[in-house]
C-alpha cells in the first residue's frame, strides 16, 4: 500500500484515481449545492428567518479563518509543485504547514462555536442558527477528513514513497483539500457578510 501504484494505461489518459476524485467532487458539488440551495430559498422565502446583528457574527475572526484556509491551499499546491521538481524536503515542509493550518482553522472554529452559543445562536434557535451550524459543521467534518488524508500523505512522504514521477496521491489529496477551501469561500460571504 505504501508503494505508489503504477499507473496503468487508461482510455482517457487520466489516471483512475484522479478521474475518480473529480467524479467524487462532482457529487460533493451536488451535496453542498442541495444545502446551499435550501439555505438560499428559505433565507429569501421564509417568514421567520432572523439574521443576527453583524457584531454578533465575529466577522474579523471568520476573515482570519478564510486567510488560514487559502494559505493552507497555497501551501498544499506548493507541496505538489515541490515533489514535481523532486524536492522531497519542500514536499514535507509544505504538507506539514498545510496540516498545521488545517488544525488552526478547526481551533478558531471551536472558539467560535461556544461564543455563538453564548450569544443565543444555537442549532435550534432559529433557521439562521440551524443552517449556520449544519453547514459549517458539515464543512468542518470535511476539513477533518482532509486533514486525515493529508496526514496519511505526510507519513508516506516522510517514508519517501513519492518521487517526481509517482506523486499522484499528493495531487488527489490536494484536489480534496482545495475543494474544502472552495466550499468555505462560498460559505463565508453567505453566512457572515450578507
Amino acid at each position: 500500500m505504501n508503494q505508489p501504484e503504477t499507473i496503468e494505461e487508461t482510455v482517457t489518459g487520466i489516471p483512475n484515481g484522479k478521474l475518480g476524485m473529480w467524479v467524487f467532487l462532482s457529487s460533493e458539488v451536488m451535496l453542498f449545492g442541495g444545502f446551499i440551495s435550501s439555505y438560499v430559498v428559505l433565507r429569501t422565502g421564509s417568514g421567520f428567518f432572523p439574521i443576527p446583528a453583524k457584531e454578533l457574527l465575529g466577522i474579523p475572526l471568520a476573515t482570519l479563518n478564510t486567510f488560514v484556509l487559502i494559505t493552507s491551499s497555497v501551501t498544499m499546491v506548493l507541496a505538489l509543485d515541490a515533489i514535481q521538481k523532486a524536492n522531497q524536503k519542500g514536499l514535507i515542509r509544505n504538507l506539514a504547514i498545510t496540516i498545521l493550518l488545517g488544525f488552526c482553522f478547526l481551533a478558531i472554529k471551536s472558539y467560535e462555536y461556544p461564543h455563538k452559543w453564548h450569544e443565543g445562536i444555537t442549532i435550534s434557535s432559529n433557521l439562521f442558527g440551524s443552517f449556520y451550524f449544519t453547514l459549517t459543521g458539515l464543512h468542518g467534518l470535511h476539513v477533518i477528513g482532509g486533514i486525515a488524508f493529508n496526514i496519511y500523505i505526510l507519513v508516506n512522504a516522510i517514508k519517501g514513497c513519492y518521487t517526481q514521477d509517482h506523486c499522484e496521491r499528493v495531487e488527489y489529496a490536494g484536489l480534496y483539500w482545495h475543494f474544502v477551501d472552495l466550499v468555505w469561500v462560498i460559505l463565508f460571504p453567505i453566512f457572515y457578510l450578507l
Partner: peptide, 22 residues
C-alpha cells in the same frame, strides 16, 4: 462531469427558487 454538476445545482436552485424563495 464537473460542469454538469454545477449545471444541475443551478437547475435545482432556479427551479425551487420561484416556488419557495419568492
Amino acid at each position: 462531469i464537473f460542469y454538469t454538476a454545477l449545471f444541475f445545482v443551478l437547475i435545482l436552485l432556479f427551479l425551487i427558487f420561484p416556488d419557495i424563495g419568492l
